[in-house]
Computed example of a mutant assay.
Amino acid sequence: MQPLFIDNLIYFIDLLGTVVFAFSGVLVAGRLKMDIIGVLVLAAVTSIGGGTIRDLLIGATPVFWIKDSHYLLTIALTAVAGMGIARVQHRFPWYLLPLLDAVGLALFVVIGAQKALSYGTSGIIAVIMGCITGVAGGVVRDILAGEIPMVLRKEVYVTACLLSGSIYVILLDVGLGHVASMFVSMLSLLCVRVPAIFLHLSLPTFHLGKDD
């Protein structure tokens, strides 16, 4: 049994990640001039899509947002607040969405890995589940928005998730506490992803030869 403090901290981080990713969904919906249903759908799939896939894969059913309606309430409130903010601030800097996405990744990768470990998975599977928790919602969001998902672009994206999840699992294995492991893991992702955003860093691309 984990201490109550750890459980509450994990829950808070999960809800914070829900808010961050939901707001990123609102930004995409606003850019595409969607109606309120479209806003809610993009906010929801971005924030709970990855966690839903994770829970189904590790057998954590019913999935988290069905057992706890606070997640849906958080998404709805974030969508309403986001639309209100967008009406006041009509234009946002180009880096806002990638930064929100980076923060959401940092929060959700560690949450996904932690939950997978709590269901008895190996460390490697926990890292994969952390990546799925972080990126899958954004993939669905981008597909619905008619964009190439970030995970398929040249950006340093999944690499940062793999690094963060691996650091979390390794630190737990060597005996570091849950809280320290979580924050070091989240910080490591931000230290990789944020500079990549502003410096436009990318991974080498795979190319078979010259185009015809």
Rank of each mutant, 00 (worst) to 15 (best):
T74P: 03
D68E: 11
G175T: 08
V45F: 11
L199K: 09
G30K: 12
S188G: 02
P149V: 05
G165M: 07
G49W: 14
I48P: 08
V151L: 15
T74Y: 03
V20R: 09
A60G: 10
S166G: 15
L152Q: 06
V184A: 14
T121A: 04
I111H: 08
S47C: 02
D68I: 02
V127M: 00
V103H: 06
H200G: 11
T133S: 15
V156S: 09
V45W: 02
L77C: 12
L187F: 07
F23R: 05
L208I: 13
D212C: 04
F108A: 09
G130H: 05
I170E: 06
G38A: 03
V110D: 05
P204H: 04
G59P: 10
P204Q: 06
F183W: 10
P98K: 08
L172E: 00
S164Y: 12
R87N: 15
T61M: 07
F92D: 03
L16G: 02
H70R: 07
L27Q: 06
V109D: 07
K33D: 04
M83F: 06
G51I: 11
A160P: 00
G25I: 00
T159Y: 14
C131Y: 10
L189M: 12
M150H: 09
L56P: 06
L172M: 09
V19Q: 04
V139L: 15
L77M: 08
F23A: 11
M186R: 04
V127E: 00
V140R: 10
G82T: 03
T121L: 13
I125S: 05
I48M: 02
S188I: 00
V194F: 03
K67I: 06
F21S: 10
A180S: 12
